[in-house]
Design a protein around this nucleic acid. Structure first.
Length: 888
RNA sequence: GGCCGGAUGGCGAAAUAGGCAGACGCACAGGACUUAAAAUCCUGGGACCGUAACAGGUCGUGCGGGUUCGAUUCCCGCUCCGGCUACCA
């Protein structure tokens, strides 16, 4: 009578786990614990549309690992939370008038219900949301720690992880202040400190969309410079912003990536993003400054290369100092501070209008390769220090102000971009590297032999590089230099629904900001966003908080100084930078994480999530982690030991799932029709976790049939209640049954360890295919099988486990062990090949020797017939594997 | 343009310290059960040639080479597809 019915089984066991607190993990491990295991999912943004099928993919994989680990006696931490600040909730609020807090917590309720419906073994007592004041209180506190830190690149030290490093984040109080600064008074000292903090203010160009009245992130701007939402024009504007000095950690973010158990592709992505390059920095003296070229050279020989460039030079960065002789012109970025000084009266109009145009372009506009290069001549010249040639200085937006020194020496002979520019504006092109194959040197960007390079002619590129760099250094003209593509992190947003900065700006008597800042003390955190009805952007770049009620916005300090709150808010990344720490101690009211709990639970042992976070989230979180590590709050320098990226699930038509394509699969519908166990099992059975793979509803039906077969193997469908199938008996296993069981245990265990979950499921299918038809079925085999199935289809497994007579949940039942001696086959089937092609199969005893195998192969009638009249040149026999005869 | 990943039956896939290609599942076909269907169970299956049916043969893991007794697996050179990134000097 009772068929397999997930609709009764699944709610029953979900309720059981909840009332028995089966998956609540105490912070103290049991005495017999086999060690801790922290398994983390990338927590979701609780969007209004609910869970999509991509979420349960990674979540099921981690759940399987956790359930398996618990059955092995490990102490498992498996939490879930919500990355719930962000623009969609705010936009929704503007459109509907509902406060974002309301919609956010509604969405969270939906997500929680859906996740519980899928039977994940989260410890819900550790749930958190980045929008909880108890949580963002500590996000603000960590920001203040960043604010209170400077990076000392020279300190040598050994961390609690036992690794020696150079460079460390240190409290700002330890920053040495130069005497001349101290002499200028307290405010000067404060400003000097502000210039060294890891969190600092700067005027940065941002994507400003007047129609939407908001600043947009680069990824919210389309390729043609329009807003992603609404398709309105976007322009560049310089606004005061908060920045985080992630660049000072660039070197360590590369170096400390190396030992991590991460996909090589993700490591490569991060390395490329940081983009370290080694080259040289050098000065080109301007023609017409208060000296002539020989005078400049002798002056530099005496005084050496200055730390900051003097105003009579253009400083450039190049990765190809060996091509210095080929530098036939220079280019400075439109935002370069020397532009005005260099522009002659005749060129002024042109340069001004060019700058104006460039300032309106978005980054994407400027980097669009399809467009031809643009630029204008400044009217000025500089001297190439290596040969004394006077070369023109141009302004062009293909040179970026934010990379290197914002100026380049252009070598059109050996750089594609410079070549294109030189051809457009008819500038001289001088080849200085001859390719090894004797091809045309112009446009050659590889390594070769120097030409047209004076004394360096004939030398290989690498030698010229070191020799010219050395020459520059000796003459005080330049030095070897390292550059990073990574920029400091623009950390402020003009939004309401985010963490407010815990900062005050000091105001002068006229109510204008002085540029000096005060922090909100810890005991006054969190700074909660004020209650406001109207946070709709007003068409100016002022953040919504700037029209917050005065009692929130203004205050007077104890010393009488007038204060105004910082009205920017933090980006969504802030909350996700440290949530993995808080899970280990989410209720701590006194500190962001207890040091002992940090030491016990961290780092995360396994972190699974989508590849879209391969760079930003993972880089930002590593950065914060390292700062907290340097300050002594954490015991490990890296947050995530092992990382796995789940692949994307495509629609049934093999395209990315999207509403507009109409190919979205809703997990609720799948669970309704087939049950949570079937959805979980199918998502794991589709293929390798990392692979991109298309959905097939018939595939869900397939795994659902397997679950029903397992059900019938153990229960009696003809009975009125769920009872044990009468074919199951307490009998010993036959040799074949025992071998299959032990092979299945071994395969399923090995596969979980490798996260090869699709093949583990096929092994269990083979097991049921074999056992389901047998009578009697040994109860011990059924017992072991149910435990193997438990991580994948936990509801069904619990029900079957109970049917097999167990009173307790199997969540902590011991994982089955296999006996290697049970795996041994007595007789092997061996392929016999002739010239590498399969011709016959023979049976030999398991321990057969090489000679025995060859003899058996030669005795096979098929082989005898095939070898008739031919001579065997060679016999290849691999013991226990195969036989091959090479014949003529 | 750069970096990364991929290409195996009608479909999702499996197998690589080099050793029976296609496990497992889907779809399909035939059969059993049924008045019938659903469900379930059994059987079949890479392609081509061949046979009444067996037998047997040839080809076959994107393409072209190479190494090897033997290559889906290793090496060299391509093609196509997907993802990310994009003037970083």
């Amino acid at each position: 009578m009772p068929r397999y019915n997930p609709k009764t089984i699944e709610p029953k066991w979900q309720a059981y786990w909840e009332t028995h607190q089966t998956f609540v993990t105490p912070n103290t491990p049991p005495a017999d614990s086999k060690g801790k295991m922290y398994v983390l999912d990338m927590f979701p943004y609780p969007s209004g549309s609910g869970l999509h099928v991509g979420h349960p993919e990674g979540y099921t994989a981690t759940d399987i690992v956790c359930r398996y680990a618990r059955m092995q006696g490990k102490h498992v931490l498996h939490p879930m939370g919500w990355d719930a600040f962000g623009l969609p909730a705010e936009q929704h609020a503007i459109n509907t008038g509902t406060h974002p807090r309301v919609t956010t917590y509604q969405n969270i309720d939906t997500f929680r219900r859906q996740l519980k419906m899928l039977g994940f073994s989260y410890d819900w007592s550790r749930e958190l949301s980045t929008t909880d004041p108890d949580y963002f209180r500590w996000t603000q506190w960590i920001f203040l720690k960043l604010y209170d830190t400077w990076y000392d690149p020279t300190t040598e030290w050994t961390g609690p992880d036992g690794i020696a490093r150079t460079g460390r984040g240190r409290p700002i109080a330890e920053l040495p202040i130069p005497e001349e600064v101290t002499a200028m008074g307290d405010d000067a000292v404060r400003r000097y400190q502000d210039d060294h903090r890891l969190a600092y203010q700067s005027s940065a160009p941002v994507n400003w969309c007047p129609e939407l009245g908001t600043v947009l992130a680069n990824e919210e701007v389309t390729a043609d410079g329009k807003s992603d939402r609404g398709n309105f024009p976007v322009e560049r504007r310089a606004l005061r912003q908060w920045m985080l000095r992630i660049t000072s950690y660039a070197e360590r973010l590369i170096d400390e990536l190396e030992p991590l158990d991460w996909p090589e592709s993700v490591k490569a992505l991060q390395r490329n993003w940081i983009g370290k390059s080694i080259g040289a920095e050098l000065d080109f003296p301007l023609v017409g400054a208060n000296h002539d070229f020989p005078e400049f050279m002798s002056h530099r020989q005496e005084t050496g290369y200055p730390h900051t460039p003097s105003l009579d030079v253009i400083r450039v960065y190049t990765t190809r100092p060996d091509t210095l002789f080929g530098a036939t012109y220079m280019v400075i970025a439109p935002e370069h501070p020397l532009v005005d000084k260099l522009t002659t009266i005749e060129q002024k109009t042109q340069v001004e209008s060019y700058r104006q145009q460039a300032s309106l372009k978005t980054d994407l506009d400027r980097t669009d390769l399809a467009k031809t290069k643009t630029g204008v001549f400044t009217g000025s010249y500089a001297t190439n220090p290596v040969n004394g040639n006077q070369i023109p200085v141009w302004v062009a937006d293909y040179v970026l102000a934010s990379y290197g020194t914002g100026a380049i020496m252009a070598v059109p002979g050996h750089d594609e971009r410079d070549l294109e520019f030189a051809q457009t504006f008819d500038l001289p092109i001088l080849p200085v590297v001859s390719p090894p194959d004797g091809a045309d040197p112009i446009g050659f960007t590889g390594q070769g032999t120097a030409i047209n390079s004076g004394q360096y002619d004939g030398l290989p590129t690498l030698d010229v590089k070191t020799q010219i760099t050395a020459w520059l250094a000796e003459n005080g003209l330049g030095k070897q230099a390292v550059n990073f593509r990574l920029r400091d992190w623009l950390f402020s947003r003009q939004r309401y629904w985010g963490e407010p900065f815990p900062l005050w700006h000091e105001l002068d008597d006229d109510g204008k900001p002085t540029g000096l800042v005060r922090t909100v003390p810890l005991d006054q955190l969190p700074v909660v966003p004020p209650d406001m009805d109207d946070f709709k952007p007003k068409g100016t770049p002022d953040p919504p908080l700037s029209w917050a009620p005065d009692n929130w916005l203004y205050a007077t300090a104890d010393d009488g100084v007038k204060l105004k709150r910082e009205t920017n808010s933090m980006p969504q990344w802030a909350g996700s930078c440290w949530y993995y720490l808080r899970f280990a101690d989410n209720k701590n009211a006194d500190f962001f994480i207890d040091p002992d709990l940090e030491k016990y639970w961290l780092p995360v042992d396994l972190y699974i999530g989508g590849a879209e976070h391969a760079v930003l989230h993972l880089l930002y979180a590593r950065f914060w982690h390292k700062v907290l590590f340097d300050l002594g709050y954490l015991s490990s320098a890296e947050p995530f030991h092992k990382l796995v990226n789940q692949g994307m699930i495509l629609g049934e038509n093999n395209e990315k799932m999207s509403k507009s394509r109409g190919n979205v699969i809703n997990p609720d519908d799948v669970v309704n029709q087939y049950g949570a166990d079937a959805l979980r099992l199918y998502e794991m059975f589709m293929g390798p976790l990392e692979a991109t793979k298309p959905w097939q509803m018939t595939g869900v039906e397939g795994v659902s049939r397997f679950l029903a077969r397992a059900w019938r193997m153990i229960t009696d469908e003809t009975a009125d209640d769920v009872t044990l199938n009468p074919a199951i008996d307490d009998v010993p296993m036959t040799a074949d049954q025992s071998r299959l069981l032990h092979k299945t245990i071994k395969a399923v265990t090995d596969d979980i360890e490798k996260l090869s979950l699709n093949t583990a499921i096929s092994r269990m299918m083979e097991f049921t295919n074999e056992f389901a038809g047998q009578t009697p079925r040994p109860k011990a085999a059924m017992d072991a099988f149910v435990r193997l199935l438990a991580p994948y289809a936990p509801h069904l497994a619990e029900e079957l486990w109970q049917t097999l007579g167990h009173a307790e949940s199997l969540a902590h039942a011991p994982w089955p062990k296999y006996d290697p001696s049970e795996l041994i086959e007595t007789e092997l089937e061996i392929p016999v090949q002739i010239n590498g092609k399969l011709k016959a199969k023979i049976k030999v005893a398991a321990g057969a020797s090489q000679e025995e195998m060859e003899a058996a192969a030669k005795a096979d009638p098929q082989i005898v017939a095939q070898l008739e009249g031919k001579s065997v040149v060679k016999s290849v026999v691999v013991v226990g594997k195969m036989v091959n005869f090479v014949v003529k």
